[in-house]
């Protein structure tokens, strides 16, 4: 492709800001994949990846939250070590846990749409606990539905067995992430408008 100098079309101010935020939240989700804590309830450690999905939906709204998570997937697919355990590549998207990854843009979109009451971003992030919890519960259901169906397709198992192998040990930890997300959104340090 040659350099195009005849008609340079600048990206609008608002779009530039949204692209920057979407990229940074995608990168944060990738960085969260490396942060794991011992889980008091099960042997599987808790990683913060899903918290990144929650925050992208809540802070960026439906459209840009979804874009942010799509960026996360594409970046991982072409080689950034952003998936669980620092893995990357198209293979991770087609592997046993690929269903979870595919769900992230959908979940972020759903969370954003519920929190902001539609696809338009409100000026202030709503802080009501029932709405936030409801949105994240829907997001969690989306993530695990995609994840379990994906695992059963990829590993050729029944849905019940895929649930036992891939979801049962991880679901309780989601409650911790929701509590943390609410704390983050209601904290005075975060002023996303």
């Amino acid at each position: 492709m040659s350099t195009d100098t005849a008609s340079v079309e600048l990206v609008g101010e608002e779009t530039a800001e949204n692209v920057a935020r979407a990229a940074l939240l995608a990168a944060l989700t990738g960085a969260f994949a490396y942060v794991s804590f011992p889980n008091p309830l099960s042997p599987a450690p808790v990683s913060l990846q899903v918290l990144g999905v929650f925050l992208a939906g809540i802070l960026l709204g439906a459209v840009w939250g979804g874009v942010s998570m799509a960026l996360y997937l594409v970046t991982g697919a072409v080689g950034a070590p952003v998936f669980a355990g620092g893995s990357a590549g198209v293979g991770a998207l087609l592997g046993p846990t690929g269903g979870y990854l595919w769900s992230y843009p959908v979940a972020a979109f759903a969370i954003g749409a519920i929190v902001h009451g539609g696809v338009r971003l409100r000026n202030r992030v709503p802080r009501g606990i029932p709405r936030l919890v409801g949105a994240m519960a829907v997001g969690t259901v989306v993530i695990y539905a995609f994840g379990v169906v994906g695992m059963s397709l990829v590993l050729g198992m029944t849905l019940q067995k895929a649930f036992v192998a891939g979801a049962a040990a991880f679901i309780p930890a989601e409650a911790f992430k929701m509590a943390a997300a609410i704390g983050v959104v209601r904290s005075d340090q975060i002023t996303a408008e």
């Binding site: 800001e17 940074l24 939240l25 990168a27 913060l48 509590a179 704390g183 983050v184 975060i190």
Partner: peptide, 21 residues
Amino acid sequence: LIDRMKLVSISGLSRALSRAD
């Protein structure tokens, strides 16, 4: 656990947002 997750994510997110701006 929740306190620790909150601590890491509040500071991490506020840095990410100010970097984004």
